[in-house]
Design a protein around this nucleic acid. Structure first.
Lengths: 219, 219
DNA sequence: GAAAATATGTTGAATTTTCAACAAAATGAG
DNA sequence: CTCATTTTGTTGAAAATTCAACATATTTTC
């Protein structure tokens, strides 16, 4: 587990917990690390929601597929971030979403019950862990506010621009990479891929932005 | 505060806490109750996010208004439910949404810091309170999954039907009331009011549903 | 490096939504 | 009860999206 200490130190779940303490804690929590190739499913829709996931390297997508086969991407979780914690904490029976590796990724899996209920060894920092989990859950809610802010726009152009503004703000500049290819961006914005491509072309001709694959620059 | 004990007993935030203990706790938390008339603002977008709200009677809407004045309704919070907890727990500077009374409502307001940090009197059930708050936050995240599941549909008809299915499931039957008038339902589904009215008419003519104001029956 | 597979861009037709304007119905005030 | 206000339903035109089909890049595989 030692090789993961660096990335875990950046994980909001372990904020304020020292490396030595963290190592002991991981044992106590029964943490396991697993490797997933691109497009492999980490948690499947419908499976029991008992585990919290942490991305050690790479990234995963949280996706939903409706009755007609339309995919909707709810969010992308990058290295150091936590996923599936809401379902585990809310104690829902089945996962309402799937978690799929976005690229070759290492994933740490922890049984949620181990986090919520203090173990017999009474880890000193358990209280901190629970506090961190709470802040993480609150932050997740706000992530969804962002997505709703974007997808509540009525046109493809408005959705795209709202999304790019958010990304620019996050990147701290007008030039940045997005974690989506065109189809995925369409599935995140809840629009048609072809219409999205057309809109990107139009915005480039208008001189509003430049885009080459996953790299965008707002002008 | 005694008159609120009944409804507070149903609030997920106070699950597992007895009435006597709850009364003491409310003092300790500095809880205040306030009355709001319909359409009055409980928390305004842009204000400091320090407080957790609990609906004692009536209901409130969580709304967002974009640059062009389009309102989007994120959720409706009914009696016994908690709101604004995510922003307070995530320690965001400004509220990204407004909270508006949906009808004449009594609201309890608690400073979030009082919940997160154990008070000097060391309330015995503080641990339970924090645990409850965590589960509440997790449940909120899932509420947003539901909304995204609905609004990710591409047509007004599909959005409406997805919404009504959810409501029927919640009501445990095919006949139920919704907490929205037509304009509000449109703002929740992220569609045009006129288009929504037309779609409801069409579905009635097709014999798929019956609707009179806020009451719907799926056939 | 060539072939195959995947991703992206382009287009026109069909569908759907939005917008604006107005009619009808329901609600509220006095 | 009546008038004023608000809500809901209806409609047609304009705008936008979806869909399907194909052209063009780009990436992957052998």
């Amino acid at each position: 587990m030692k090789k993961y200490l660096n990335i875990l130190g950046k994980c909001p779940l372990f904020f304020g917990i020292g490396q030595d303490e963290l190592l002991r804690m991981l044992v106590c929590l029964g943490a396991k690390a697993e490797f997933y190739d691109k497009k492999y499913t980490v948690f499947a829709e419908g499976s029991r929601a008992k585990y919290i996931g942490i991305v050690l390297s790479g990234s995963v997508q949280i996706t939903q597929v409706d009755f007609y086969g339309n995919r909707s991407i709810l969010s992308v979780i990058g290295a150091g971030q936590v996923f599936a914690e809401a379902f585990a904490c809310a104690e829902v029976e089945e996962m309402p979403v799937s978690v799929v590796a976005n690229e070759p990724s290492e994933i740490m899996i922890i049984e949620c019950a181990h986090v919520l209920h203090t173990c017999e060894n009474r880890c000193a920092f358990h209280r901190q862990l629970i506090f961190n989990l709470m802040k993480d859950l609150a932050t997740k809610t706000i992530t969804f506010h962002k997505k709703i802010d974007i997808t509540s726009k009525r046109t493809t152009r408005e959705k795209l621009m709202a999304y790019l503004m958010h990304e620019a703000k996050r990147a701290g500049g007008n030039s940045f990479d997005i974690p989506f290819d065109r189809q995925e961006l369409a599935d995140y914005l809840e629009v048609e891929r072809s219409g999205l491509s057309a809109e990107i072309s139009k915005l480039q001709k208008e001189g509003v932005l430049e885009s080459r694959k996953k790299h965008f620059t707002l002008l």
